[in-house]
Amino acid sequence: MKTKSKIMCLVMSIWGGITQVWADGNPVDKVYHPLVIANERKFEWRFTSRQTDDKNVLAQRFAYGQAVSEYLIIEAYISGQRDESDDYGLQGIELEARYMLTDQGQYWADWGLLFEFEKQHDDNNFEFTTGVLFEKEFVRTSLTLNALLIYEWGENVPNEFETEFRLQYRYRFMPEVQPAIEIYTGEDFVGIGPAFMGVHRYSGIKQLKWELAAIAGFNGNSKDRTLRFAIEYEF
């Protein structure tokens, strides 16, 4: 086979892998920002409720995060999920690293990287995510994009790639209230909806951040709505 053909085959295989995605995760989650603050420590709670025609899945994640340098923050999660049969339990553990590639405003846009490693609690199933984080200011608004590539493997899941894309366009109205629009795409999923977020500052560097979004999935005639809420205490 000629070199050009081999390259084409490789590209097609990679593209096939990327586009061959699975549907067991909810693509609606936090839209990550590239910014990392040195000395940052935080506790975080995330909640999502996804309602489809035949089921409601509740998921919660608790996390502790700490910046280990001016550019790198590490966060550890435990996650729980209530499935369609009303069983609620520990779903998995996760370790996440977010790296700020560029300082705020240094270049035309701000860039960052995301790495996540997740293990399911009961089974030897794993997931590794890499992603590019992008943020661009337009006067009093900010556009944030996350492009994620996920690889899953393990005992009960096929070895597969998944891609996800998240977008948030935020109006920095006032610290406490900042309206936004969020868009999510994943396997057979395109969702869009309004979001609100804000920050309340206490003394010193202590602050409480919150996010709330209601995302409607456009998947034909079937119902697919996700409510997501996150609260973060930084100290």
Binding site: I37, N39, Q104, E137, S142, R172, M174, P175
Partner: peptide, 8 residues
């Protein structure tokens, strides 16, 4: 907040 900057 108005400058959208935060740095230690």
């Amino acid at each position: 907040f108005s400058l959208n900057r935060q740095k230690v």
